[in-house]
């Protein structure tokens, strides 16, 4: 992992409120793997205290630059959307464990919901380079929110789209589309990124069909390097760090709804003491 000052060489608003930034960093672009992320300092710390924000590596220009794709959803991304070309951003990366794949894979399915295309486009490019055949399925609420459709179409054997309002591709969610088509496509492995509920349903379908399923999840993070233990994700093997053990997990291992306290088993967790402990 590196801490670099990365120059912004391009900034594009590819859809309303969705930005693509290209940042120069030979170090990060050389060692990045699909599914890994970068931890970015947004805005000027002298004006305002902001924790770093994690972003999936969207694509790399080998040995030179990498891209991130983000939507303005809060104060960090709002600051980031205001950077100008030639500004330098303080970036730590590449971080975390990415998607696992081997050239032996016969067929894969990449499933993205909304901004979930962010880590998957990098993966699509890697799979193409390794001659792995794959399908892509992209879902969004509306046609304008459907991101990177053309890019996937260029790389995948077949690219499906689903919009919830039916304005483009299949009418409905990407999960419904998967459930209708999975028995025909029969992928060996599914790679997915998107909202948690979507990932849960995809993992369930994958398990029903005995398909390996790797999902990229997100969590609120502070340090991003595994020191603060803030970004834990509940898995069937206990708490795991999203930043260090993830952000890609096997769908089977995740305890879905883990962030919803009520749904979790109480044994093993010390509630009585936890509530009053004020720190660390």
């Amino acid at each position: 992992m590196f801490q670099v000052k990365a120059d912004v060489i391009s900034k594009e608003e590819i859809s309303p409120g969705v930005f693509n930034l290209t940042l120069i960093s030979p170090e990060i672009s050389r060692s990045a793997r699909p599914g890994q992320f970068v931890h970015v300092l947004c805005g000027d710390q002298n004006d305002r205290f902001l924790l770093r924000r994690p972003f999936s590596i969207h694509r790399v220009v080998p040995g030179r630059a990498f891209e991130i794709l983000f939507q303005v959803v809060g104060s960090g991304t709002d600051e980031l959307s205001r950077v100008k070309i030639h500004d330098a951003l303080d970036v730590i990366g590449p971080l975390g464990n990415g998607f696992k794949y081997s050239p032996e894979i016969k067929s894969a399915l990449l499933l993205a919901g909304g901004l979930g295309v962010a880590p998957l486009l990098f993966l699509a490019e890697e799979l193409t380079e390794n001659h792995v055949m794959f399908y892509a399925m992209l879902g969004a609420k509306t046609k304008t929110e459907l991101l990177r459709y053309i890019d996937f179409k260029r790389l995948a054997k077949k690219t499906f789209a689903a919009t919830e309002d039916g304005s483009f591709g299949h009418d409905g969610t990407v999960v419904a589309l998967l459930n209708r088509t999975v028995h025909q496509l029969r992928p060996q492995v599914i790679y997915a990124c998107g909202p948690e509920k979507m990932l849960q349903k995809i993992s369930e379908t994958a398990e029903d069909f005995g398909i390996d399923c790797q999902v990229s999840v997100e969590a609120k993070m502070a340090c991003g390097i595994g020191a603060c233990l803030g970004c834990t994700y509940a898995t069937k093997r206990g708490f795991r760090l999203t930043c260090k053990d993830g952000p890609v997990f096997n769908g089977r291992d995740i305890m879905w709804g883990g962030s919803d306290v009520e749904q979790l088993p109480l044994d093993g967790y010390d509630y009585e003491t936890a509530e009053i402990t004020d720190s660390d």
Partner: peptide
């Protein structure tokens, strides 16, 4: 084991944590 996630949250000029 520590506390349930979410364990951290950003606040104005600071952050809350309950790592446990």
């Amino acid at each position: 084991e520590g506390n349930m996630p979410p364990r951290i949250c950003e606040t104005t000029s600071g952050m809350l944590n309950s790592i446990g």
